[in-house]
Amino acid sequence: MRITVGDTMTAETTDTPLAFTPRFGFSDLELVVAGYADPAGRERQLPDTFGSMQWLWSEDEHLRFDRGSRELCSLTLFVPPESVPPESVAVPQGHTAHDDPPTRPGGLRADEARDFAMPQTGVFHCDPGGTELRCLRDVEALGRKVDARLGIAPDVALLVQDGAVIGWSLRDPARYLTDGFAEPPPTPPAPATRLLLAECLELVSSPLVDEVMDKDAAAWRRLRAAEQALREQQDDRDRAEVLHRVISRLVEDYEA
Rank of each mutant, 00 (worst) to 15 (best):
P128S: 00
P128G: 00
P128W: 01
G129L: 14
G129I: 08
G129K: 13
G130I: 01
G130E: 10
G130D: 02
G130P: 05
G130R: 04
T131N: 14
E132T: 11
E132Y: 13
L133F: 05
R134G: 02
R134T: 14
R134W: 04
R134Y: 03
R134C: 15
R134N: 08
C135W: 00
C135P: 00
L136Q: 14
L136I: 07
R137Q: 12
R137N: 08
D138M: 05
V139M: 10
E140H: 13
A141P: 03
L142V: 01
L142A: 02
L142P: 12
G143K: 07
G143W: 00
G143S: 02
G143H: 02
G143C: 02
G143Y: 00
R144P: 06
K145G: 10
K145I: 12
D147P: 05
D147N: 13
A148H: 15
A148Q: 11
A148D: 14
R149H: 05
R149C: 14
R149V: 09
G151L: 02
G151F: 05
G151I: 02
I152A: 05
P154L: 11
P154T: 15
P154C: 12
D155R: 14
D155G: 07
V156M: 14
V156S: 10
V156L: 12
A157V: 08
A157N: 15
A157S: 15
A157W: 14
L158W: 02
L158N: 03
L159C: 07
L159P: 04
V160K: 06
V160C: 07
V160R: 10
V160W: 11
V160N: 02
Q161W: 03
Q161E: 05
D162L: 11
D162N: 15
D162V: 09
G163H: 02
G163P: 09
G163D: 01
G163F: 06
I166S: 06
I166L: 10
G167P: 03
G167Q: 04
G167N: 07
G167V: 13
G167M: 02
G167L: 10
S169C: 09
S169V: 03
R171E: 10
R171P: 08
R171W: 07
D172G: 13
D172R: 12
D172C: 14
P173Q: 08
P173T: 01
